[in-house]
Design a protein around this nucleic acid. Structure first.
Lengths: 138, 138
DNA sequence: AATTAATTGCAACAAAGTTTTATTTTTTTG
DNA sequence: CAAAAAAATAAAACTTTGTTGCAATTAATT
């Protein structure tokens, strides 16, 4: 049984060509992907299938969404702690304004934020934008 | 000259009914608004006019965008420091999972984040989600 | 008040996302 | 391993969201 199949089974998803393909894209990417990018890289898959696959990956805790200020949605692989219904992706995200890539910065966790009285925090998302390490080399 | 007119002139925008109406909505709201909400509350305005007005308000530094994990875009009033082309909205945003409202938490600024070598930060956005002060009273 | 410049509304269009249904594929079970 | 059941897919139709060009209107300038 391939790595992909093992991974999908682990998250209680049946193994299909589409899911394997999309999961492979995430494993290869090392960065966040959006629907349009996946559509380009997996032309054999129907648009709707990609929507549904992303949705079920999020539900199962395989990938998480990353906030953006435009109207796009970006997705990236979760680490092991995430499972069905509960995400624990409390790391910083970095968006490079030069190359457009979005990275998970796993090493940097989001600091605790002290909120005004009455506000109770359940989750925090922190997106830093600027110039990434690769773009700074050139 | 009304408060609204003064404000629009200050930002070098000509005074029109639509702009006054939309600016008023923001002043009244005390929370972030999205396109759909404005469309509902200003039915006399054309959809396209609302898109264009929001765009010019962002350009002039009257409002700023707030990142979301879904594909919506939220806008909220800026404070005085913002001007044409340069925003300085380094405060935390709070999204209430109960009532759905998004607030600017002006009192809380975003902490400096130490990034891995090679990454240069230009801007940071921090969205905390949970339960707001109003929802916690009930 | 007349001219110029900017904004608006409308229509047409393009892109993004959803829903339904029939077909195909995967999983389960005997 | 084959048949039955369950789940996933593709295709079509549709809804929502955002954009562009242009003529008509409104605001600013002189």
């Amino acid at each position: 049984m391939s790595q992909l199949e093992t991974l999908l089974k682990k998250y209680n998803l049946s193994v299909t060509e589409g899911r394997k393909k999309i999961l492979q894209l995430f494993l290869d990417a090392n960065a966040a992907l959006e629907h349009a990018t996946i559509e380009q890289n997996a032309p054999s898959l129907d648009r709707v299938t990609i929507y549904r696959t992303l949705q079920s990956f999020v539900e199962k805790g395989i990938i998480h969404t990353i906030p953006t200020t435009d109207s796009s949605i970006k997705y990236a692989l979760c680490k092991d702690e995430c499972g069905h219904g509960h995400h624990h992706d409390n790391h910083v995200h970095f968006l490079c304004n030069t190359c457009g890539t979005t990275f998970c910065i796993e090493q940097v966790t989001i600091p605790k934020i002290k909120l005004p009285a009455g506000f109770v925090s359940q989750q925090a998302d922190l997106v830093v934008s600027g110039r990434c390490n690769l773009c700074n080399q050139n």
